[in-house]
Write a protein that binds this DNA or RNA. Structure first.
Ligand SMILES: [Mn+2]
Ligand SMILES: [Mn+2]
Ligand SMILES: [Zn+2]
Ligand SMILES: [Zn+2]
Lengths: 144, 144
DNA sequence: AGGCGCATGAGAAGTATTTGCAAATACGGA
DNA sequence: TCCGTATTTGCAAATACTTCTCATGCGCCT
């Protein structure tokens, strides 16, 4: 999967930074990463990379359709692998945990609404902000 | 509507900057404004106001429930009057024109999805990005 | 009118992201 | 394998938006 060929036939040289960034998205459990997440993780792996390069590579990958960028109501952008299946997101306000979902009917209605009003829809974003109920989630107030 | 009393009983002194900002949202045709929009419009009206004050006032009004903040995939936040009716947005990618919509069924399904997955939903954002078909809209390519 | 305390304006500071540039590197051809 | 060259990289400086600091100003109660 993370082969130099992948990068090459999208018109990008197979450089170490690019291979490592791609590898990170393909092998890491956490699916949604910020530029800084990526930067920090690679530095921890002893990969000598610059933050500016991370930003550049993420942008290139997004333009190449390899990654998708989102803004989850935080000031920083997050990226995830583009698996080809469109989906929307549920985001935990306490711990940042993200779950994906897809609802055929919602998608249908979105298109209908845009059409009715004479808009040619290009894209959309749907984010549900909530509190998750995972054990790992730092819930509110009980203990300061 | 834009009376000093309104501000006072939300615990804020009725200062000129606050009155003018509120007045702008209540009387201006454009409903969705950035901090800079507000700043610029007031300066044009010969109102001597600082950008920092605009940011502060917008934040206060949002906390007081008078305004609602959104992020339409641009780097800047936009505010609109809180009329009490929740709605989502259609945004033109060419000209920035915004239309509001509300779909009962979509709202229902969002809640259902969150519930099914054990999330206690707090909030959501749904933005449809498209090209509008208004005459005033600068459409793509034809003339450079 | 007088005085207290919150509010304001100007600029500095803070974040996230982008850009300029010289040095480093990928990679097709010799 | 070694080279030449066009890309790419890391760093620092630049941007864009927003928040903060602080000295001064003004709303509001008496
Ligand atoms: Mn969707
Ligand atoms: Mn909605
Ligand atoms: Zn959580
Ligand atoms: Zn338009």
């Amino acid at each position: 999967m993370t082969s130099p060929a992948n990068l090459k036939n999208m018109g990008l040289k197979a450089t170490l930074p690019r291979l490592k960034v791609l590898e990170l998205f393909e092998h890491h459990e956490k699916q949604h990463l910020t530029a800084d997440d990526v930067y920090r993780m690679l530095i921890n792996e002893q990969i000598d990379i610059g933050l500016a390069t991370v930003y550049r590579v993420l942008t290139q990958f997004e333009q190449a359709g390899l990654l998708i960028r989102h803004h989850f109501d935080s000031e920083k952008a997050v990226y995830e692998l583009n698996a080809g299946q469109h989906h929307d997101h549920l985001v935990c306000l306490q711990c940042g945990h993200v779950e994906e979902f897809y609802d055929e009917e919602i998608e249908r209605r979105q298109n209908m609404i845009a059409e009715q009003r004479g808009f040619a829809i290009h894209d959309h974003s749907l984010h549900l902000y909530a509190d998750c109920k995972r054990d790992a989630c730092p819930r509110r107030s009980p203990h300061k």
